[in-house]
Nucleic acid binder design. Structure first.
Length: 858
RNA sequence: GGGCGCUUAGCUCAGCGGGAGAGCACUCGCCUUACAAGCGAGGGGUCACUGGUUCGAUCCCAGUAGCGCCCACCA
């Protein structure tokens, strides 16, 4: 089929084939520039931030969720007439990319990065990025992301690098960036510093050993989970008020296994109720101990290297930290220094979030962002509503974080990334230089690179041209919406808030929409070890992109995790197919979309148009409030239960009659609107169907549906509800009686004010012949009686009626009791009391009707 | 140790002061001329437990028991 010609009816087979339409449609959208923002547009703008995926990444199910929901937002805004910008980009992902390329070099060339100069290695990473990176961009196309490809950016490209250097210098000049020797989180495998949030804590089994330091009267017992670090101990600390140890304060005790003597110091930080109330102090290898060491002016003894290998001369030298732990405990036991052991001992242990290696607190010289004022501003912006967090229930997490933030360690001992724009003179002078500024001859640049999140934090404005006052920056900053998983609230959202407010003096976005995480069909977290991960591309291949997208949207209640299973995607595929065939029906029957919709609608036509107005209002509201699951569910049920199951069936009757033209116009109206309402979620199938139905260029260019309140028609809704009640009753009767759908039952109808033709058609009733004998009478709750001529299975009918009678009696009892309660009648709202009176009356009428029918069966 | 949340049909989840809902699964019957990726009918729940507030509680409050998530430098 041609990508440029609207489909004609014979082109529509009975099954939707997504594979045939998706790729050509996407290319057509891109080529025609539908996704491209127009900086000169006079329309209002809508800008949304895309969380830039890792350049090394590939589309996983979490992306599928986030990208689907973002695309839903932006496609609707576009149809609403906004000039939209959804700017795509990728993140250079420092550690993971470098690790990947190092592994690649090891496998293909058997070399490590240290076999190359830094420049050579970085060149290889760039080459790798060009060749293998960015696979995810193609996958975003597959998913249908309506991003503005003309503005695609990369966090390491020239413009963004300028932004990084500019803000670094500004922060440095404002004394918000500093260099200091601190205990930082060090990964002995990645060989780099990490920030606090790149460390995952888990409760691991370890050991707690109590060791006697010193000898005789001047001895003291300390407890530790890290016996090996005693080699770097420079004190024992006790609480100043602890009577047990007062006599030892200021004295020296001998450190076992060494010839060193270390002081006993008093420090408020020690908890006298924990363990023995005495703690060994290793300032170079523990953050708490470092603080004690600073206060007590203790020396720092470094006892292991960057790979976690013991460097203290002696029997333990060369052992790795875990081997050393056992060896040290064994040696202490030999000397009868171990006075207690607890094993296993569960305690929190930090792991590298990338490689799971146990983190080593390490004393080293690193760069930090002084976050206090920045975090305060980020918190205030949410507190005073300049930025809102959706759902609001997740805001406390944000505040908890910004209100308790530690300074951010931003230097990484890697080669791939933005090299820290600071130069040192041979004499040790330091200067930070902005873009274009050259260091004096002989000065050398700091070898470290910046944390990847440093550049990601600039994404909402660096991508728009900052620090230049570009037209894009003026038009699209601040962005309107950021949508992302709650798992990166701290990594990224908080930091964008801090830097956006700092650099632009305005929030980076007005609304943060937080989504949950994908889980499997049993609600379990997806993980490779559980083997329950899924590849969204497999599901797109099997069921189509729209099926995947609809599944994502339908599961996405605000802030809650989203369980998905293959059966659910299949169900969504079925829904797309239902839309396909229903629209196909409309086309086969000459549905029209041009011309004013007639005012004098009647019956089913008036009903469905009335319902459509209500659905438009409700769907629009749900979309606006990011209630994706409820919007999807509403449209699913309107389309399937009302349009397909009832309206299409009723329209078949009208299409054979004198008002066929009106019905053709209503069919066109309903499907036109329905497809537009669904387009943000399922863009491909709706585009295919809408262009076929309307002959229009693209549903993307069609206006977002607006409800017309004057089309509301309560009378028509009541009329159709009456028809539905009788038809359902008839179908139940037929089912109970085992009457095949293909056989028509002669019947006489009475008590109807309208809708006889519809009831006859949907109930598959024949007009009575000359020999008609009423063998059974059905009287519906609405007072309609249907006499049929066929041999009735009285037992089946009695069973049915008996059951209905029981239900009606129960209903009568409940309402009788309620109305007999004087307090209820006196205090409940009149409307509620009236409602129960009505229910009681209806129950009594039902009982009378059913009892009569039962006696008629005898 | 702090903070937040959850417990509703077999599974996954909506609902959150006045008649228990959806999808999937299940049972029965159907190729009824848009669709078998479908159509029609049906079965299935003391809404975790115990108290309280209320004329009325799945919904509000308190407690209990499970479960989950986030944060945290207690050796």
């Amino acid at each position: 089929m041609s990508a440029t010609r609207p489909l004609s009816v014979p082109d529509l087979p009975t099954q939707y084939a997504p594979a045939e339409v998706e790729a050509p449609l996407y290319e057509r959208w891109v080529q025609r520039g539908y996704f491209t923002a127009d900086v000169d547009s006079t329309r209002p703008r809508f800008a949304m931030v895309l969380p830039p995926p890792n350049v090394t990444g590939s589309l996983h199910i979490g992306h599928a969720l986030g990208h689907t929901l973002m695309d839903v937002i932006v496609r609707r805004k576009r149809m609403q007439g906004f000039d939209t910008l959804w700017l795509p980009g990728m993140d250079h992902a420092g550690i993971s990319t470098q690790t990947l390329v190092e592994r690649h070099l090891a496998e293909t060339e058997g070399k490590s990065r240290h076999d190359y100069t830094r420049e050579e290695f970085v060149a290889k990473v760039w080459a790798w990025k060009e060749e293998y990176g960015g696979k995810i961009l193609g996958q975003m196309r597959r998913l249908g992301d309506s991003v503005d490809w003309t503005r695609e950016r990369f966090t390491m490209d020239e413009g963004l690098s300028v932004a990084v250097r500019t803000i670094f210098k500004k922060l440095y000049d404002d004394d918000l960036i500093y260099r200091a020797e601190r205990i930082i989180n060090w990964c002995p495998r990645c060989l780099t510093a990490l920030s606090d949030i790149e460390v995952d804590h888990s409760d691991d089994d370890g050991e707690l050993v109590s060791i006697r330091y010193g000898d005789g009267d001047e001895s003291i017992v300390v407890a530790t989970t890290r016996a090996e670090t005693m080699l770097g101990d420079t004190a024992v600390a006790v609480h100043p008020d602890d009577e047990r140890y007062r006599h030892l304060i200021g004295k020296q005790v001998r450190l076992p296994l060494t010839n060193r003597r270390i002081p006993v110091v008093a420090d408020e930080q020690v908890d006298p109720t924990f363990g023995t109330g005495a703690v060994k102090v290793t300032p170079a290898h523990d953050p708490n101990d470092f603080e004690i060491g600073q206060r007590q002016h203790l020396p720092n003894v470094v006892m292991m290297n960057e790979r976690g290998i013991i460097t203290v001369p002696g029997p333990f030298e060369g052992l790795d930290r875990f081997e050393a732990r056992s060896a040290v405990v064994a040696a202490l036991r030999e000397e009868r220094r171990i006075v207690a052991e607890k094993r296993p001992y569960r305690h929190a242990v930090g792991h590298c979030s990338r490689c799971e290696t146990v983190i080593e607190p390490r004393l080293s010289l690193q760069w930090f962002v002084r976050v206090a004022s920045l975090a305060k501003a980020a918190g205030d912006a949410v507190r005073d509503g300049r930025t809102t967090i959706e759902p609001a229930s997740l805001a406390p997490r944000y505040f908890e974080w910004v209100d308790n933030m530690h300074d951010w360690c931003i230097s990484r001992q890697l080669w791939w990334g933005h090299q820290i724009p600071v130069w040192y003179s041979p004499d040790g002078d330091v200067v930070s230089l902005g873009p274009g500024e050259e260091p004096p001859p002989g000065w050398t640049q700091d070898p470290d690179v910046l944390d990847t999140w440093f550049s990601s934090a600039l994404f909402p404005f660096s991508t728009l041209g900052w620090p230049d006052e570009t037209a894009d920056l003026k038009r699209f900053y601040p962005n309107d919406v950021l949508l992302t998983g709650y798992d990166i609230l701290f990594f990224w959202v908080v930091r964008m808030m801090m830097f956006g407010l700092y650099a632009m003096d305005d929030v980076p976005f007005r609304t943060v929409v937080l989504t949950g995480l994908i889980r499997d069909q049993f609600g379990r977290k997806m993980s490779k070890s559980k083997g329950n991960t899924v590849d969204p591309l497999d599901w797109m291949d099997a069921y189509g992109t729209d099926a995947l997208r609809f599944t994502m949207a339908r599961g996405a209640n605000p802030g809650t995790d989203v369980p998905v299973g293959e059966e659910w995607v299949a169900g969504s595929r079925n829904f797309c197919n239902k839309l396909w065939n229903a629209t196909r029906f409309a086309l086969l029957n000459g549905a029209t979309v041009s011309g004013e919709l007639p005012r004098d609608l009647a019956g089913a036509d008036a009903w469905i148009v009335s319902r459509l107005q209500a659905v438009i209002v409700e769907a629009d509201d749900l979309y606006e409030r990011y209630e994706f699951a409820k919007a999807a569910d509403l449209l699913y049920h309107f389309a399937w239960d009302e349009v397909c199951d009832w309206y299409v069936e009723l329209a078949k009757i009208s299409l054979a009659g004198p008002r066929a033209d009106v019905t053709r116009r209503v069919l066109g109206e309903v499907f036109d609107a329905l497809l537009r309402l669904l387009h943000p979620i399922v863009p491909f199938v709706t585009e295919t169907l809408w262009t076929a139905l309307t002959g229009g260029e693209s549903v993307m260019l069609a206006p977002w549906p607006a409800a017309d309140a004057s089309r509301g028609d309560a009378a028509a809704e009541a009329e159709v509800a009456g028809i539905q009640a009788v038809v359902t009753e008839l179908r139940r009767f037929r089912s109970d009686q085992g009457i095949k759908p293909s056989s028509r039952v002669p019947a006489r109808l009475a008590g109807l004010s309208s809708g006889e033709a519809e009831i006859r058609a949907l109930g598959r009733l024949d007009v009575p012949g000359t020999h008609f004998v009423a063998t059974a009478v059905l009287t519906t709750a609405g007072g309609v009686t249907v006499e049929v001529d066929l041999s009735v299975d009285a037992a089946a009918q009695r069973a049915r009626l008996t059951k209905e009678l029981a239900a009606a009696r129960q209903e009568r009892e409940v309402n009788t009791a309620k109305l007999a309660n004087e307090a209820f009648v006196a205090k409940a709202p009149a409307a509620v009391v009236g409602k129960h009176r009505g229910r009681l009356a209806a129950a009594e009428a039902d009982i009378a009707r059913i009892e009569a029918a039962l006696s008629g069966l005898q």
